[in-house]
């Protein structure tokens, strides 16, 4: 399904985070959102997920305004990984991941979703099978992050929105998660994620959206948008990193 962003604008008080902009997030597209701290990346993702109303314009899923969708139907199609969540959960990792099946279960379905194939599969995808019966609250920060991503995948939405999916992960897990997201797009899904490392955007994403001062957005195919000079301007610092030179880009792809 296609997510149409139509004249969307975001603001907090008098501060404009996104000037009215329209674009389309289609199947088989992986979008990286880049921007300095406080640029409004989280708010933008929340607006795409339809849980933030503080904006003008609209987001349409399958041509229908996201706000008029039933939340449950929406939850079957769009999932959002929140940036930060409380580690307070009493059950096991498997119980935690199984909660994602909620929007798919019939009203009179048997309660336990722990053995749902997508739960087992997403635990395996995030290499959590051995931790499945551990209590969620005993996990380390990185393990918890993987459990949260596993929960998102177990929800089996076509459109994955992820707010800093690489938080707390070690290098190998970062690459693994980005590979999983790339596989999701390769299978026809869409991904929108906020990232702090432009190299990951160049290597794994097809498109990028950069959030500049005063709500100006630059967006398009990643190799056109994520250039060395653009990234230097975005973060306001000089970079000495060959990986960001435009002519070096293809080596990462």
């Amino acid at each position: 399904m296609t997510l149409d962003v139509h004249q969307l604008s975001l603001a907090v008080g008098a501060r404009i985070l996104v000037q009215p902009t329209s674009w389309t997030i289609g199947p088989k597209e992986c979008w990286a959102i880049l921007g300095p701290n406080g640029a409004g990346k989280t708010m933008l993702l929340h607006a795409l997920a339809g849980i933030d109303l503080a904006h003008a314009g609209e987001v349409r899923l399958g041509g229908v305004n996201i706000q008029t969708w039933q939340r449950r139907d929406l939850a079957q199609r769009i999932g959002l990984l929140l940036q930060d969540e409380s580690p307070e959960y009493w059950g096991t990792v498997q119980d935690y991941v199984a909660l994602a099946r909620l929007p798919h279960r019939g009203r009179y379905a048997k309660d336990a979703a722990e053995n749902d194939p997508s739960v087992t599969a997403s635990l395996a995808a995030l290499r959590l099978t051995d931790l499945a019966s551990r209590r969620f609250r005993t996990l380390s920060g990185g393990e918890r992050q993987r459990a949260r991503i596993a929960q998102l995948l177990a929800q089996t939405p076509e459109i994955l929105l992820l707010d800093e999916p690489l938080n707390h992960l070690d290098l190998a897990q970062e690459i693994h998660v980005m590979t999983l997201l790339a596989a999701h797009t390769a299978h026809g899904g869409s991904v929108v994620c906020t990232l702090h490392d432009p190299v990951y955007a160049l290597r794994y994403c097809s498109h990028a959206l950069m959030m500049y001062d005063a709500g100006r957005l630059e967006l398009g195919p990643v190799t056109q948008v994520v250039t060395r000079s653009a990234v230097e301007q975005l973060y306001g610092c000089r970079l000495d990193w060959p990986g960001l030179d435009a002519d070096f880009g293809p080596h990462f792809r």
């Binding site: 997920a49 939340r71 409380s86 909620l102």
Partner: peptide
């Protein structure tokens, strides 16, 4: 309300994202 209450243990935002009223 049991399944909705289970989802609420994840916080209200996550519960909404999982389709809970």
């Amino acid at each position: 309300l049991r399944t909705n209450l289970d989802a609420l243990t994840l916080g209200t935002v996550k519960a909404r994202l999982l389709g809970v009223a």
